[in-house]
């Protein structure tokens, strides 16, 4: 077990684990859950040096790029605990147990305008914060047609979790990679004025091999291009969405990112560059605000770079290649 990835270990028994967590929370409340979570976090903190080091590297890069960010004592352990709390809230959200009063949409006017424009778009999320809480957005704004693009393997686990849920079911589009059929399906949703949620900081779903190194906390890190190519081809707007925990409850940030509405073919590459960097910049700024809500517990800057990666030259090749790993997903 010890040589396994931390999130992989967490993930292996996740459905049972999550139900146990939910049970503990139900019987013992916040205090009881947090007490048990503390010991569980200490255990994982000791047993998983890779995740611990990843957490430390992230925190060092964040604080050296932004000296004004203050981290609490025992910051990596607290980082692990924040993940445990996020897992609990993720399950609670899926079970419809997060009271709507606890979810505050900061940019409500932006969201309203995005919906009423009828243009739909791609909503780019990340593993900063807890975007599952945004399932609640559909309840808060019944006129918001929202689908979630999810890797098939995650979707299976997700569906098992949902099978016991009483909350509203999100519309999930299961894919193993972004190909022509997926592009068509997303195009249909967006043409109907709908929004499609895609995680754009990792590569569980992407165009195989397509990623760009972007400046992130002063160092280059690789981000997948897939979501931006889709927006460029579908000529739709992209939005940055983040849902993070604060003392008073959950805050939902919804901001415009890049709009491909009038994009010309020859401008695509530059547009993707700008859009991806804008995404990384927003992500970095929100890391300053919610430093412990960053749930990428792996060496984020050590991903394969375009330079050492063979280019995905053909859709045929990408269809034959192994599906991307799921191990980085909590």
């Amino acid at each position: 077990m010890s040589n396994k990835h931390w999130s992989e270990v967490k993930e292996s028994g996740s459905v049972t684990g999550m139900n146990i967590m939910l049970g503990i929370h139900r019987w013992l409340g916040d205090t009881g859950y947090n007490t048990i979570l503390f010991f569980v976090s200490v255990y994982y903190w000791c047993r998983n040096p890779l995740a611990r080091r990843a957490s430390r590297q992230y925190q060092r890069r964040l604080t050296s790029a932004h000296p004004d960010v203050r981290l609490p004592a025992l910051a990596t352990l607290r980082h692990f605990m924040a993940f445990g709390i996020a897992m609990r809230d993720k399950v609670r959200a899926l079970h419809g147990q997060i009271p709507l009063n606890d979810v505050q949409i900061v940019d409500h006017a932006t969201l309203r305008d995005a919906i009423t424009s009828g243009r739909g778009g791609l909503i780019l999320v990340s593993h900063l914060g807890n975007h599952e809480i945004c399932q609640a957005l559909g309840t808060l704004r019944p006129d918001l047609k929202i689908s979630v693009l999810m890797h098939t393997r995650h979707a299976q686990r997700f569906n098992t979790l949902l099978s016991r849920s009483s909350g509203p079911r999100p519309d999930i589009i299961e894919v193993s990679e972004i190909g022509p059929a997926t592009a068509q399906r997303l195009g249909d949703r967006i043409n109907e004025g709908g929004f499609v949620v895609i995680a754009a900081d990792r590569e569980p779903i992407g165009l195989t091999g397509r990623r760009r190194a972007l400046e992130f906390m002063g160092h280059p890190a690789c981000f997948p291009e897939g979501a931006f190519w889709l927006a460029a081809l579908l000529r739709c707007p992209t939005w940055f969405l983040l849902c993070a925990r604060e003392r008073s409850g959950y805050k939902v940030h919804f901001e415009p990112l890049a709009d491909a509405g009038t994009l010309k073919r020859h401008e695509r590459n530059a547009w993707i560059d700008q859009g991806m960097q804008a995404y990384a910049d927003r992500l970095e700024q929100f890391c300053c605000r919610y430093p412990l809500e960053w749930f990428n517990f792996y060496p984020f800057w050590a991903q394969r770079t375009p330079a050492n990666e063979p280019d995905a030259t053909s859709a045929l090749q990408s269809a034959e290649s192994t599906p991307p790993t799921t191990r980085h997903d909590p």
Partner: peptide, 24 residues
């Protein structure tokens, strides 16, 4: 390449109403 495949898929849908079932 793979981007061309996406574009081609969208063009087939637009011009001929063809719905593709699965990417692979």
């Amino acid at each position: 390449d793979s981007i061309d495949a996406l574009e081609l898929g969208l063009a087939l849908q637009k011009h001929y109403g063809i719905k593709l079932d699965s990417d692979a």
